[in-house]
Simulated assay, not measured.
Amino acid sequence: MARVVGVHGIGKQLLGEDSLLKEWRPALTDGLRRAGSAGAVAEADVAMAFYGDLFRPAGEFLAVGDPPYSAADVEEGFEQELLLAWWRAAAESDPQVVPPDADTLAATPRSVQAALRALSGSRFFAGVALRGMVFDLKQVHRYLTERDLRARARERVLEAIGEETRVVVAHSLGSVVAYEALCARPGHQVRALVSFGSPLGIPNLILHRLEPAPLGMGGDVRGVWPGTDELVWTNVADDGDVVALVKDLRPAFGDRLRSVRVHNGSHAHDATAYLTDALFGKAIAGGLA
């Protein structure tokens, strides 16, 4: 089993373990080199826990890629609320995004269309088709509401983690999957969890829906620690990362969590941009020491 296990984020349903590792392995090595720990991990020591195919529509003749979603497919409730939260976050970090005003914050079809239109012109979602944004919304929603899919995704992570695994590196929605998987295996030997671009701290939409459920009530909740006291959890976030709406996870999971800010430029949510940072490499090296 690998010493380092990566867990990918949303929107990777058309890729696979090997294609993702082609991007992650060299970026991870660069981050370790920046941290002064070049050679800390060999190529064979890194594996990818892949669950993206669980979201891929079954193949059929005359159908290619994601379903042709439109604004009308964004469901009321969770999906509309998360979309509007992304819009607010994008407007705060990107001056080119027109901020939502009080009238458009109501979850109406018109506000959904306005949000998708505003996000399509942002740096964060540059190059992402409208149907891709809607598909990403639905991936998060489906993971949190479809019990069988949720269990299968967590099992993919647990299958990749062995007795020799010391570091779990989890991106975006993958940080939610990895967190729940580690909580589901008491006694695991992972010594470092490095989450990045993580939505784990978003109240109501994500934090309050975690399994196991956080302790406390209302706005005063505390997530369960995903391991023993020996586990070091580092959360890395870029100020412009729209998915990581809550940058500092310490209020949600405790002060022993290490909170790190990085600067990924126009690639705020890109996994490889995170992985190449020296502080990210330091967090991985610490778990391997």
Rank of each mutant, 00 (worst) to 15 (best):
R150Y: 03
L182K: 07
H188Y: 13
D94P: 08
Q139K: 06
H188E: 04
L82W: 09
V176I: 14
V134P: 05
R117Q: 09
S172A: 13
S70G: 15
Y179P: 03
F196N: 08
E164D: 15
R88E: 15
A90V: 02
R123F: 06
L158H: 05
V194A: 04
A181L: 08
F78C: 10
R147Q: 14
H188S: 05
L182Y: 10
A89N: 13
I161A: 06
G174C: 07
R131W: 11
R110S: 01
G77T: 12
L116I: 10
R191S: 11
G201M: 13
R152P: 15
Q139Y: 04
D101R: 01
E81N: 11
E75T: 10
W87A: 05
A184F: 04
A151C: 04
D66Y: 05
K138L: 09
S122F: 07
Y179A: 14
G197F: 01
V167S: 14
V112P: 03
C183F: 03
A106H: 12
K138T: 10
V74Q: 05
F78M: 12
T145R: 06
D136K: 00
A153W: 04
V74L: 06
C183K: 05
M133P: 01
T108Y: 06
G187Q: 06
V157W: 03
R152Y: 11
L144E: 11
G197I: 02
L173P: 00
F196M: 09
V134R: 14
S195A: 15
V128R: 11
R131P: 10
I161D: 11
H141L: 00
F135E: 08
L119Y: 01
R150I: 01
A129H: 08
R166T: 04
E146C: 09
V97C: 10
D73L: 06
V190L: 10
A90E: 04
A129N: 07
P203S: 13
H141T: 09
A107Y: 02
R150P: 02
V98P: 00
A115W: 01
H141F: 08
E180G: 14
A72T: 07
S70N: 05
Y69S: 12
V168Q: 08
A160E: 07
K138F: 09
R185P: 06
G187C: 04
V168T: 14
G187P: 11
N204D: 12
S175T: 07
K138R: 15
V190N: 02
R142D: 15
L116S: 07
V194P: 03
S120V: 00
R88A: 08
R191H: 08
R123P: 00
E180P: 13
V134K: 13
A129Y: 03
V168H: 10
P100I: 04
G121R: 15
Q80N: 03
A106P: 01
Y69I: 04
A72C: 01
L173Y: 01
A72H: 13
P67L: 10
R117W: 06
P68S: 02
A71G: 07
S122P: 06
A129M: 11
